[in-house]
Design a protein around this nucleic acid. Structure first.
Length: 293
DNA sequence: GCCCAGGAGTGTG
DNA sequence: CACACTCATGGG
């Protein structure tokens, strides 16, 4: 593989990189002061930059399929305008949605997504980012510039639980180690064939995977847009905006009845709105300088 | 120091 | 079904 950068342009619209890569659905992208974003995609380090209607893609080491990989990651096939128009029928959503018109749900690698959201339990986004960086540095192949690919299934399966704990994962280390013993190299492909209801039930069989994590993995990892992850922020939003309260199953039924096939997008709008109300910023930007060393 | 975090697991009423 | 408690730890 020639370690030569490759450059190309993609036309994906609408697309706001800050909203899409900095909103907390994915954890490995870093924003540079010039507004470009860089992150590992497979075994390449990809840099994305918007120029007008186009997205400039730079990849190291460049492979011919990087354009397809980026388009897949950004779900280029999703008709965001149509999805937003459908969801705008809901007055509660339409209010805050216009500020997020460039937000796209991303399609993360299934294995990476599963591990990432197992680590995301009861931790804030900066810490989740640090944990994922830690296991990548320790178990992932080096790409370039100190950036490592996300560790493969085999590399994490062979990791000792004690070693994982030493990376600051806390009680999540045990869940991750036990989950690896229940999976094999073909598990993600098998899960991908299931419908959403069976997928989330199968995911919940894994230690450290409950309703919320199963829905995050269904949405961001397996691309099921009907999934509606309910965390503390979404739960507050449902209560505040709709007066909906109760357990996960009840709120899930409420969301599916109200938002339907695009519940995942509705969830992201509600999540960001509610989190923004509590704090100041829209996105949790992590600068290139502070996140790498 | 204090509070809380894109929860899960287990036990109890 | 709803709560209550514990888990292990670091960012803000």
């Amino acid at each position: 593989m020639a370690r030569v950068p490759i450059n190309l342009e993609l036309r994906i619209q609408p697309l706001d990189l800050d909203q899409t890569l900095g909103c907390g659905q994915t954890f490995r992208w870093r924003r540079a002061p010039d507004g470009s974003w860089s992150g590992p995609l497979g075994r390449q380090l990809v840099r994305l930059r918007r120029t007008g209607r186009m997205t400039v893609v730079t990849a190291v080491p460049g492979t011919a399929d990087v354009g397809e990989a980026v388009a897949n990651y950004l779900r280029a096939e999703d008709d965001i305008v149509r999805i937003q128009r459908a969801l705008a029928a809901d007055r509660m959503l339409s209010a805050g949605m216009s500020r997020m018109s460039g937000l796209r749900i991303v399609k993360i690698d299934e294995w990476e997504c599963l591990v990432s959201y197992m680590l995301a339990t009861y931790a804030n986004i900066p810490r989740i980012t640090m944990m994922i960086d830690a296991i990548s540095r320790r178990y992932g192949d080096a790409i370039t510039g100190g950036v490592h690919a996300f560790p493969s299934f085999a590399s994490l399966r062979d990791a000792s639980p004690r070693d994982l704990e030493g990376l600051g994962l806390g009680y999540r280390a045990k869940h991750l180690a036990e989950a690896c013993q229940l999976l094999d190299g073909t598990s993600m492909r098998r899960l991908a064939r299931l419908d959403y209801a069976n997928l989330r039930e199968q995911l919940k069989e894994l230690p450290g995977v409950g309703d919320k994590v199963a829905d995050c993995v269904s949405l961001f990892g397996f691309g099921r847009l009907e999934a509606f992850p309910i965390d503390v922020w979404v739960s507050r939003a449902l209560d505040r905006l709709y007066g909906a309260s109760g357990g996960y199953a009840k709120l899930m039924r409420f969301a599916q009845a109200r938002f339907g096939a695009y519940a995942g997008y509705a969830q992201e709008y509600l999540f960001l709105n509610e989190r923004t109300r509590a704090s100041s910023g829209f996105c949790s930007f992590t600068s290139v300088d502070s996140a790498r060393s």
